[in-house]
Design a protein around this nucleic acid. Structure first.
Lengths: 196, 196
DNA sequence: CCTACCGATCGGTAGG
DNA sequence: CCTACCGATCGGTAGG
């Protein structure tokens, strides 16, 4: 008798979400039907509803995972006593590394989170706002301490967050460039631009 | 008797595309139906087909306008004899200014160009690639001349293009920040990061 | 620019 | 996990 709940169920759920992330990234969330996703998993569309209550819940699963990764990381950074330049550098590297290693989930979250169903949408939006505020505070502190050039801390924060999304648009042809060069060059560009 | 062709026709076409850009940006291209667009224009959906052959042609109209703006600008820059730092600064400022003044069209083009119908898709992709190559060349020259820090020119190009898209994600709440601060702070961040 | 309408496809449910 | 199926909505056409 096969297990119908527990570990097997959770693993199947994760497998569905992983495949969904690939399709959602390639074709977009709205352009990917539950039939497309089912076909990629070699099952029929209604079977998906044994694992997720709706299409929106699959997106929610993906976005929540990504968001909690970022929140956990920045909370760790806040606790540390490192200089601000190092803190910002670690955050930049976390973003770039996440973008490269969890490419599909990251891109889908950034592009499609506004299509999250209602309660999940508000929760996710709040998390993004909280993350942004933590980063603004870190950058503002660095400016006050004289480590960073004095500019509008919110503009710098949003520019940093935009830059670090760069690998999103990388085409296959650019993949000749190694991950470490991508991470190092972008990190240095940003740090050099931010510090005094 | 109303004119049924010429200037009036062209103006109506532009008006449809402008409204479409607003809706496509807010809800996404796929999530905006021809009925939604028609309603916003106070006409019936089938009437739209007197101005555009398909939904895809509306997207094509928007993306082609944006693309030609960028191509014309960089070709002007290539012709000039200014130092490389000034050239790059002008390009950065063009991007930021375009993003702020043609917000909807710019965001829609960046987010939805991959949904362009087949011939337009290939044309637009080629234009983006050409633009990218021109920018890589400019940055590589600047590095060779010793004006810019030596890094992978393609990584720097793609990071620059990502950064300059920052205002895309600006929320209304951040609009307390003036456009000139946004443009100046991001330009300075990037130039400082790029130069030697 | 409108009314009337079509075939295709969608997310999701019933029932097993 | 499947078959059978539904109501809603979509892009687009016919014909005026």
């Amino acid at each position: 008798m096969a297990k119908i709940s527990g570990e097997g169920k959770k693993a199947k759920k994760a497998a569905i979400a992983q495949k969904a992330a690939i399709l959602f990234r390639k074709r977009g969330y709205t352009n990917t039907s539950m039939r497309d996703l089912a076909e990629a998993l070699h099952i029929e569309a209604p079977s998906l509803y044994n694992h997720f209550g709706s299409k929106g819940e699959i997106l929610e699963y993906i976005c929540a995972n990504v968001a909690s990764g970022y929140m956990n990381h920045i909370e760790q950074i806040e606790k540390s006593t490192k200089p601000h330049t190092e803190k910002i550098e670690e955050i930049i590297r976390y973003h770039l590394n996440a973008m490269i290693t969890d490419f599909d989930e990251q891109v889908v979250t950034n592009h499609e989170w506004k299509q999250l169903p209602s309660p999940a949408f508000n929760k996710h939006r709040t998390q993004r706002k909280q993350y942004e505020e933590k980063l603004v505070a870190l950058i503002f502190e660095g400016m006050k301490k004289g480590a960073f050039s004095k500019r509008n801390p919110r503009v710098i924060t949003l520019a940093l967050l935009a830059t670090v999304r760069g690998p999103e648009t990388w085409s296959k042809g650019n993949n000749k460039i190694s991950n470490s060069i991508i991470i190092d060059d972008i990190t240095q560009l940003l740090i050099k631009g931010i510090i005094k």
